[in-house]
C-alpha cells in the first residue's frame, strides 16, 4: 500500500521541531520508529498533511539510569548493560516488545505514545466501511460499547508504560511555550481518542525521568500474547517489590497495560498490603485483589475474562519469582 501523500519535515533541533509542531498544529503527526504510525497511515487512519520525523535530533537520544531520551531505540534499551544491571525491568520489557527488526525501529517515546488499538480501528478502509466506521476514525459511534456516548474504548498497548509506572517515572514535555515534567501516572486519559489528560497538541515527549529510589525495587514484567515473537500484548503486567529481611512488604507496585484505554497503576488496591508478612497465601490474595481492580475491554485478542484471570496469575508468579518468601 502506498502511504497517503504528506509534507515530510526532518528538524535537527528541538527548537525547530517545536516550531514546526506549533505551525502545523492540528494537521501534523510526529514519527519516531514508524512501526505504529506508518501501518495506520497505510490503512488511512487519521492521516495528517504534515509528518515530522524525529530521527535527526540528538537531544532526544541517550540512556542513563535517571533519564532515557525519547528516541532511545527499544533494541538499545534491551541491550544496555547499564539498564540490565540497574533497572533490569526496563531491558526485560523492551526485549518482549514485538520482533527483533521492529525493536530496531521502535523507540521509547514511540512506545509510550503508541496510539490506542481496537479490533474495529486497526483495519483496512474496506473492512471499516463494511461494518460502518467507528468513533475513532470517520464514524460517530463506538463499536465496542455502542452506548458509550462519545467515549472511545480503544485499548492502550504500549508496554514500556507499565514498567515505567511502577518505577515512578516522569515525562518531560516540550513546546514552543517551554518545558514541563509530569508524573507518568497522571499523563494518560481514560478515553481512547483523547489519550492524554492535558498534553497540549504542540508538545512533544523529550525524555522519561526515573527517580533514584526506583533502583531499590525488585521488579519483573510478564506479557500475554498469542504469538511471543511479534504480537501486541493482550495483557502486560509489571510488578515492583521492596521486602525486608523478615519478609515484610515495604513497597508493592503493580501496573497493567493492554487492558483498557490507558495503562493502569493499581496503587490504591496495593496499599493495604504494605506492612504485611509475605506468604504463599498473601501472594494469592494480592493476585485476587489485582484481578478485581482490573477491567479489560473486548477489542483485542483473547477473552477479557481470561485476561483478568491472568492478572492474578502473573501477579502471583512475579511475586514468587522476585521473593522466595511468597513461595511458602
Amino acid at each position: 500500500m502506498e502511504l497517503p501523500a504528506f509534507h515530510y519535515h526532518r528538524p535537527n533541533s528541538l527548537d525547530e521541531a517545536s516550531a514546526l509542531l506549533a505551525r502545523h498544529q492540528g494537521d501534523v503527526d510526529l514519527v519516531a520508529g514508524g512501526t505504529d504510525l506508518l501501518p495506520n497511515y497505510k490503512n488511512r487512519l487519521n492521516a495528517r498533511s504534515h509528518v515530522i520525523s524525529l530521527g535527526g535530533i540528538s537531544a532526544l537520544q541517550g540512556i542513563s539510569t535517571r533519564r532515557i531520551g525519547a528516541m532511545a531505540r527499544l533494541v538499545e534499551i534491551e541491550r544496555s548493560p547499564l539498564l540490565q544491571t540497574r533497572l533490569p525491568v526496563l531491558a526485560e520489557t523492551a526485549s518482549k516488545i514485538s520482533s527483533p527488526p521492529l525493536r530496531q525501529h521502535g523507540t521509547l517515546g514511540g512506545n509510550l505514545m503508541l496510539d490506542t488499538r481496537c479490533y474495529y480501528f486497526n483495519q483496512s478502509p474496506l473492512w471499516r466501511q463494511s461494518v460502518d466506521f467507528c468513533l475513532k476514525a470517520e464514524g460517530t459511534k463506538c463499536l465496542v460499547v455502542p452506548s458509550s456516548k462519545g467515549r472511545c474504548f480503544a485499548t492502550y498497548s504500549g508496554e514500556m508504560a507499565a514498567s515505567l509506572l511502577i518505577l515512578g517515572a516522569k515525562v518531560e514535555l516540550l513546546s514552543a511555550a517551554g518545558a514541563r515534567t509530569l508524573p507518568l501516572a497522571e499523563f494518560f486519559d481514560e478515553d481512547g481518542i483523547v489519550r492524554f489528560r492535558d498534553r497540549k497538541e504542540d508538545e512533544l515527549v523529550v525524555a522519561v525521568h526515573i527517580p533514584e529510589e526506583a533502583e531499590q525495587l525488585s521488579c519483573g514484567y510478564r506479557k500475554l500474547a498469542i504469538r511471543d515473537s511479534i504480537d501486541f500484548p493482550s495483557l502486560g503486567l509489571a510488578l515492583g517489590l521492596r521486602i525486608n529481611k523478615r519478609g515484610v512488604i515495604e513497597d508493592l507496585r503493580l501496573a497493567t497495560t493492554a487492558m483498557a484505554s490507558r495503562p493502569e497503576l493499581l496503587d490504591e488496591p496495593m496499599a493495604e498490603f504494605i506492612g504485611q508478612q509475605a506468604s504463599a497465601q498473601l501472594a494469592f490474595r494480592i493476585g485476587e485483589v489485582a484481578q478485581k481492580a482490573s477491567v479489560a475491554y473486548r477489542n483485542v485478542p483473547l477473552d477479557p475474562k481470561y485476561r483478568r484471570k491472568m492478572v492474578a496469575v502473573f501477579t502471583r508468579r512475579l511475586l514468587e519469582a522476585i521473593s522466595p518468601a511468597f513461595a511458602n
Binding site: G33, G34, L38, P39, K42, S99, H105
Partner: peptide, 29 residues
C-alpha cells in the same frame, strides 16, 4: 504484509536489519 509483520522487506540500514516497508525513504538521507 506491508505492515511490519512478515519481514520479507528486510534490508540493512547502516548495517542494522530494518524493515523497508516501515521506513520513510527520506529518513535514510
Amino acid at each position: 504484509c506491508d505492515m511490519g509483520t512478515c519481514g520479507c522487506c528486510a534490508v540493512q540500514i547502516n548495517g542494522e536489519p530494518r524493515l523497508s516497508c516501515l521506513t520513510l525513504a527520506h529518513d535514510c538521507e
